[in-house]
Deep mutational scan, measured.
Amino acid sequence: SEEEEEEWRRAKERGEEIIILGILWKPNDEEAERRIKEALRRV
């Protein structure tokens, strides 16, 4: 969703871990980033 995407962007800017759509994303975690982008597209 729009607000999840916004939340994720803010976490990326701050360089902090975030759990979004049930996926743990850490800074520079390209695999998780790809999965999150896929999940955001499906929503």
Rank of each mutant, 00 (worst) to 15 (best):
E4Q: 11
E5I: 06
P27F: 03
A11D: 03
G22D: 06
E17A: 11
E7Y: 10
E2M: 14
R42W: 04
I18T: 10
R35T: 08
G15D: 04
A11Q: 03
A39H: 07
I19Y: 13
K12D: 04
I19W: 15
R10Y: 06
R35W: 03
I20Q: 02
K26N: 09
E13Y: 03
E5Q: 02
L40Q: 04
N28H: 09
E5S: 03
A11P: 01
K12C: 11
N28S: 07
R9S: 08
S1Q: 12
S1F: 15
R34N: 11
E6K: 03
P27S: 00
E33Y: 03
D29G: 00
R10V: 10
E17Y: 07
E7P: 01
K12H: 11
R9D: 11
E6P: 10
W25K: 00
V43S: 13
I19T: 11
I20R: 01
W25G: 04
W8S: 06
R14V: 09
R42N: 12
E31M: 06
K26W: 06
E17W: 10
W8R: 07
R10K: 14
E6R: 03
I20V: 09
I18P: 00
E6H: 05
E13S: 10
S1H: 15
G15K: 07
A32W: 01
R34Y: 04
W8H: 06
W25L: 03
E31I: 08
E6T: 02
E3L: 14
I18M: 02
W8Q: 06
R14E: 08
R41S: 12
W8P: 08
E7C: 15
K26P: 05
K37R: 12
L21G: 07
E7S: 11
E30I: 13
D29F: 02
E31K: 05
K26V: 13
A32E: 04
E6S: 02
G22A: 03
W25N: 01
I23K: 02
I23W: 00
E5V: 04
G22V: 09
A32K: 01
L40A: 05
E13H: 06
E5R: 01
R34W: 05
W25H: 01
R9G: 07
A11H: 05
R41N: 11
V43T: 10
K37T: 13
R41T: 11
I20G: 01
P27E: 03
I20A: 00
R34M: 14
E17F: 06
L21Q: 10
E38D: 13
E31S: 09
E31H: 07
N28K: 04
R41G: 10
E33L: 05
R35P: 00
E30Q: 10
R35Q: 13
E7V: 06
E6Q: 04
K37V: 12
E5F: 08
E38M: 00
R41W: 03
W25F: 05
R14G: 06
I23A: 01
I18D: 02
W8M: 10
E13Q: 11
E13L: 11
E33V: 04
E16K: 09
I19S: 05
E13T: 08
L40S: 02
I19R: 08
L21N: 05
I19A: 02
E17V: 11
G22R: 00
L21M: 13
A39C: 07
K12E: 05
W8N: 03
E5K: 02
V43R: 15
R14C: 15
R41D: 11
N28G: 15
R10G: 11
S1V: 15
K26Q: 10
G22E: 06
L40C: 05
I18R: 03
W8V: 09
I18A: 06
E3I: 14
I23H: 04
L21V: 04
I23G: 02
E2F: 15
R34Q: 13
L40T: 02
R10F: 04
E4D: 13
L21P: 00
R42M: 12
E7G: 07
V43M: 14
W8D: 04
E7N: 14
I18F: 11
W25Y: 04
E5G: 02
E30Y: 12
N28L: 06
E17H: 08
I18E: 01
R14N: 11
I20E: 01
R9L: 15
E3G: 14
E16D: 11
I23Q: 02
I19N: 07
E3Y: 15
L21C: 14
R9A: 11
E38K: 01
A39D: 03
E33A: 08
R35K: 14
I23D: 04
E2H: 15
E2K: 12
E30P: 12
